[in-house]
């Protein structure tokens, strides 16, 4: 535990128990049942070392349950699970000592100030005093909380609380950082700031594992991700590769009745029509012919954009991610 300088200046070295290029988290047939209901249905995972790995899916897809199993907070019903090459059911103390956690709900200790929260958390990890003081300072700087160090938790905004939770997760200089919906409910500036910091951590060689139901978050942050729905992994890969593999490059979203759209666009080659509620989705490799035909009908409202993971999700599951 010598050389406890903050890891941003000292990129993450080799991770004990993991061969170079190996997987930090490995799961096989991982299953979790609650009262007979299957929350996670036999998933396999290989989370590579370094960079950001995402779990994307709607609420109830099994993302948080999977994270809880990885943290030893929820014993799997069946299957195997190891972190840093260590079995979770036997080595959870060592795994947690090397992991940082940002839970879905901020749970900073309301009886302590910002800095006291970090110092108390350091005690749970039994970090030596000489290490803690400089690290608390650096983390408060890193998360832009230095001027709030001595403030009580209840005086913080939602964004500040979130930043404190992230700073707290870094107090033990973790090799693996687990974030459960890190930016849910935050305003755009704070989201951007947090994304920047997470990217910095990824570049420093940390392994980030995050859940999200935000497409843009997954596309911006994740080098690799799994798409979950109903307790299963339904797709896996790099965000761009998933989009290229599963959907056409463009989509036109159209407000209009199904019959009209079918008549108007159904005959165009290479065009695929989908429908969710009132909205029609026209997937295509070439926009021009679609827009030209839509232009012939006055008063039809439409907008076009490049396809995203949202479209991948819709394609694979038949329902929208945000409404599932």
């Amino acid at each position: 535990m010598q050389d406890q300088e903050w890891a941003l200046e000292h990129p993450q070295g080799p991770v004990a128990g993991v061969a170079p290029g190996g997987s930090v988290v490995v799961a096989r047939g991982l299953t979790k049942a609650f009262d007979g209901r299957l929350a996670v249905r036999g998933i396999d995972l290989d989370v590579p070392q370094g960079g950001c790995f995402g779990f994307l899916g709607p609420n109830g897809a099994g993302k948080t349950t999977t994270l809880r199993m990885i943290l030893g907070q929820s014993p799997p019903s069946s299957g195997t699970l190891s972190v840093f090459g260590l079995p979770v059911e036997r080595s959870i103390r060592e795994i947690r000592a090397r992991t940082g956690v940002v839970p879905q709900a901020d749970n900073a200790d309301p009886d302590f100030t910002v800095a006291e929260n970090l110092r108390m958390y350091a005690r749970y990890f039994r970090l030596p005093r000489a290490v803690v003081a400089p690290r608390v300072r650096e983390l408060l700087e890193f998360m832009e909380l230095a001027d709030r160090a001595d403030d009580p938790i209840k005086s913080l905004s939602g964004g500040m609380k979130r930043r404190l939770t992230i700073a707290r997760a870094l107090i033990n200089d973790p090799e693996l950082i687990i974030l459960d919906e890190p930016t849910t409910g935050l305003d755009p500036q704070v989201r951007r700031m947090i994304w920047n910091r997470l990217r910095q951590l990824g570049h420093a060689g940390k392994t980030l594992l995050l859940t999200t139901h935000y497409m843009d978050e997954a596309e911006r942050l994740c080098d690799d991700l799994v798409v979950m729905d109903g307790g299963r992994i339904i797709a896996q890969g790099a965000p761009r590769a998933l989009v290229e593999a599963h959907v056409e490059p463009y989509v036109v979203e159209i407000q209009g009745d199904a019959a009209t759209l079918q008549r108007l666009l159904g005959s165009l080659p290479g065009v695929r029509l989908e429908r969710v509620g009132e909205t029609g989705y026209c997937y295509t490799a070439s926009l021009a012919p679609v827009l030209e035909r839509l232009g012939q009908v006055p008063g039809i409202s439409h907008r076009h954009r490049p396809t995203t993971l949202e479209d991948v999700f819709l394609r694979i599951t038949g329902h929208e991610l945000r409404e599932a």
Binding site: L71, Q73, I92, R93, E94, R96, A97, T99, G100, V101, P103, A105, N107, A108, D109, P110, Y121, Y124, F125, R126, R168, A169, N172
Partner: peptide, 14 residues
């Protein structure tokens, strides 16, 4: 309400 134990259970404590 405070979820203090949830926070502690992300550390080596049991």
């Amino acid at each position: 309400h405070q979820q203090t134990y949830d926070a502690i259970l992300a550390t080596p404590l049991s």
